[in-house]
């Protein structure tokens, strides 16, 4: 049981500071979670702390590989709206 960080991570250090297990470490190109140390915060907090402060959607995955924060849940931007804006910008 361990969470993981993927390459949409922006290296903001927020998760590093709040992890109760010191499982998160600085790495290139982005922070990583030491799977042996990660407890998913069980016994410490109701919710995994890294996923509770991370500002980037889909940057942290659960043990099954599913995003802890789905697209649109943190920014409030509906994914289809974001896709539309990106298409519009690229077509300029």
């Amino acid at each position: 049981m361990a969470l993981s960080i993927v390459d949409s991570c922006v290296n903001c250090w927020a998760c590093y500071d709040v992890c109760p297990s010191e499982a998160i470490y600085e790495s290139k190109p982005h922070f990583k979670i030491n799977a042996r140390k990660c407890t998913e915060c069980e016994g410490d907090y109701d919710q995994p702390q890294c996923a509770s402060i991370c500002p980037i959607e889909e940057a942290i995955l659960d043990a099954s590989g599913a995003p802890m924060n789905a697209l649109g849940t943190l920014t409030g931007i509906p994914p289809e709206k974001m896709a539309e804006a990106m298409r519009e910008i690229q077509s300029r």
Binding site: C12, W13, A14, Y16, I53, I56
Partner: peptide
């Protein structure tokens, strides 16, 4: 100071 404790609607944390 890269970490933040709130999200503002005028900010995008992909700031690089």
């Amino acid at each position: 100071a890269p970490a933040c404790n709130i999200q503002c609607h005028y900010c995008n944390r992909k700031y690089d």
